[in-house]
Amino acid sequence: MRTQTGLLLAHTIVVQAVTFMLRPASAYRALDLDVPAAWLGVLGASFAVVPLVLAVPSGHAVDRFGERRIVLAGSGLLAAAGACFVLFADSVAGLVVASMVLGTGHLCAVVGQQALVANRTAADRYDAAFGYYTFAASLGQALGPGLIVVFGGDRPIPDTGAIFLGATALTLPLLVAAAFLRPSAHHRQAAGPAAGGLAGLLRQPGLVRALAVSCVVLAAVDITLVYLPALGAERGIAAGSIGVLLGLRAVASMASRLLLGRLVAAVGRRGLLVGTVALSAAGVGLLLPPLPLWAMAVVVTVSGLGLGAGQPLTMSFLAESAPPGLRGRAMSLRLTGNRLGQVVIPSAAGALAAGAGAAGVLACTAAGLAGAAVAATGLHQGPPPDPTPRPEREEPC
Rank of each mutant, 00 (worst) to 15 (best):
Q4E: 14
L8N: 05
A10W: 10
T12Y: 00
I13R: 03
Q16E: 07
L22Q: 10
P24W: 07
L31P: 03
L31W: 03
V35N: 01
A37F: 07
W39Y: 11
G41V: 11
V42W: 09
G44I: 05
G44P: 05
F47C: 01
A48N: 10
P51G: 13
V53T: 14
V56A: 08
S58N: 08
R64S: 13
I70S: 12
I70M: 12
I70F: 10
A73Q: 05
S75Q: 08
A79D: 12
A81L: 07
A83W: 15
C84T: 15
L87E: 06
D90V: 06
S91R: 09
G94L: 13
L95V: 07
V101F: 01
T104M: 07
G105I: 00
L107Y: 13
L107N: 13
L107E: 13
L107F: 15
C108N: 11
A109W: 04
Q114P: 04
Q114A: 05
A115L: 13
L116C: 07
V117D: 15
D124M: 05
D127T: 11
Y133W: 12
F135Q: 01
A136H: 09
A137F: 05
A137I: 13
A142H: 06
A142I: 15
L147G: 10
V150I: 12
R155P: 02
I157G: 08
D159V: 01
L165W: 11
L165K: 09
G166Q: 10
A177E: 00
A177D: 01
A178T: 06
A179F: 08
A179P: 11
F180S: 11
P183G: 03
S184N: 15
A185P: 06
H187N: 02
R188E: 06
R188D: 04
Q189P: 01
G200K: 07
G200Y: 01
L202N: 02
G206D: 10
G206P: 11
A212D: 03
C215I: 00
V226N: 07
P229E: 02
G232K: 03
G236C: 05
A239T: 02
G240Y: 12
G240W: 13
I242A: 14
S253G: 14
A255P: 01
L263N: 01
A266P: 04
L273Y: 08
T276F: 12
T276V: 12
V277L: 15
V277A: 15
V277N: 15
L279Q: 11
S280C: 10
S280D: 11
G283C: 07
P289A: 10
P290W: 00
L291K: 05
A297F: 02
A297Y: 02
A297V: 13
V298Q: 03
V300K: 10
T301P: 15
L305Q: 11
G306A: 03
L307Q: 11
G308L: 08
F317D: 01
L318E: 04
R327A: 00
L335C: 03
T336P: 14
Q342W: 15
I345A: 04
P346Y: 10
A348W: 14
A348Y: 09
A353I: 05
A354C: 07
A356Y: 02
G360H: 06
V361F: 09
L362T: 15
L362G: 01
A366N: 05
A366D: 04
A372F: 04
A376G: 09
T377S: 09
G378D: 07
L379R: 06
Q381R: 13
P383C: 06
P389G: 04
P391A: 00
P391F: 05
P391N: 03
E394R: 13
